[in-house]
Simulated assay, not measured.
Amino acid sequence: MSRYFNLSILALLILCTTGCSEVYYPKVISDNELLVVDGLITNASGPFVIKLSKAVKYGSGSVSSPDPVSNAKLTIFDNNGSYPLQETSQGEYTTPPSFVTKIGNSYKLQIQTEDGYMYESDPQQLPAPQSYDSIKSYYTTEKILDSDKSLLTLTGADVRIDLLNSSSDKIKCRFTTNLTVQYRYSIPPVTPYGSIDATDISYCTGYLCHGWATNLSIENNVNITDEISTSANNSISNHKIGFIPFSIAGYQADQDLKFVPSVAYLYFYLKINQYTLNDATYAFYKAAKGQLNASGKIFDPIASQLYSNIKCTNNPSKTVLGFFEASSVVNTAFFIRQGDNSVLINKVPTVKIPPNTLVENKYWACESLPPKDFYLGNLPYPSWWGHGVL
């Protein structure tokens, strides 16, 4: 077994941060301080941020926070010139306003660290974006683990897409997701004797609640399209994006949903990021997926250090982790809710969702008129709530 087993997983998890909400930095066996590069540029509007850190050494106390690499000089080169990046926070380097990507151009990352080492990536061509042709969702049940590692069978939406391609190029795509769970519920009035006393204002109010928790993901590990061996038909049908449970029990691991009643009515706002990959990037994610999907069987792939497209030019024996990626992206969003043994799904605009929150308002539930200063009416939902569809 290679001594770089942990390093291979580290390189993968760093690169998956575009779709995940938490990064895991495993301990490595090597005593060397290895540079980790987390870099992604797309056809979208910048600026883009490239992160540098050091691999966490074996025996260190931390497995969840990076050791940022500061005071480095980063430059991106393309067909038209060079663009120096600026360190905007520790270990994070941002592209200048003048840096605008163009489909078909090639991009190369150069890094000079404070200790004098020079690093350079292979040129990465930015491919044209490949968008999905149709999206569908099936009403089904799946088994998932809750926060206590108990196996639950839950009803939900199995989200899938079709990709059609009339050209001779193979479809090479990667998908990440961001799910917002919207919920609403009410807390009814309570009296000491189990009935409402219309003359006692202190027992005549309940609460209407609504809230949302975002930054959840539904894809499993590395979600890439399967490689097609024949060129006769480049279409990909029924590619699975992920599963959305319709029960609050499927989201118990999220602290903001922990105390939501099980009777809460749930809505879902799903963002899908579809990255079109060049050959080198696809090969990297394919290898990463193979390692993460290994289950310990005799013919499973042997874990090894994942290929990096970045090399140390003044010390070729120095190992580098991570990958400098140039991929085009298409972002789409959908509003989803449960129907009668069905899934209702509709495409909606992509919007920026505020951080997790809960809104509560008192409501009047007595037979007599409420106090003059009492709020009566519907809760003020955000303008994006449900997008007014379905």
Rank of each mutant, 00 (worst) to 15 (best):
T180W: 08
Y282P: 00
A283I: 04
N71K: 14
V348E: 06
T276I: 04
F335A: 15
A294P: 03
I196W: 07
D122S: 13
V190Q: 11
I345Q: 13
N356L: 08
N71T: 11
I336V: 14
P354L: 06
C366P: 08
E114V: 07
L179I: 06
D256H: 09
E120P: 06
P66R: 11
I201R: 04
R174T: 04
Y132I: 13
T176H: 10
S327W: 06
I248W: 00
A333K: 07
S383Y: 05
S134V: 01
V56I: 15
I248R: 00
L379T: 05
I161V: 15
D115P: 02
D31M: 07
Y24I: 14
L10I: 02
A326K: 04
Y265I: 11
V36N: 08
Q125K: 14
F175Y: 15
L292S: 09
S168D: 13
L7H: 10
C204G: 15
N278W: 07
K108I: 13
S317R: 09
Y4G: 00
S328A: 11
F324P: 04
N273S: 12
K318N: 04
T42I: 09
Y251L: 00
Y139V: 02
V181Q: 00
T319A: 06
A280R: 05
P371E: 15
A157Y: 06
V63I: 13
P68V: 06
C312F: 01
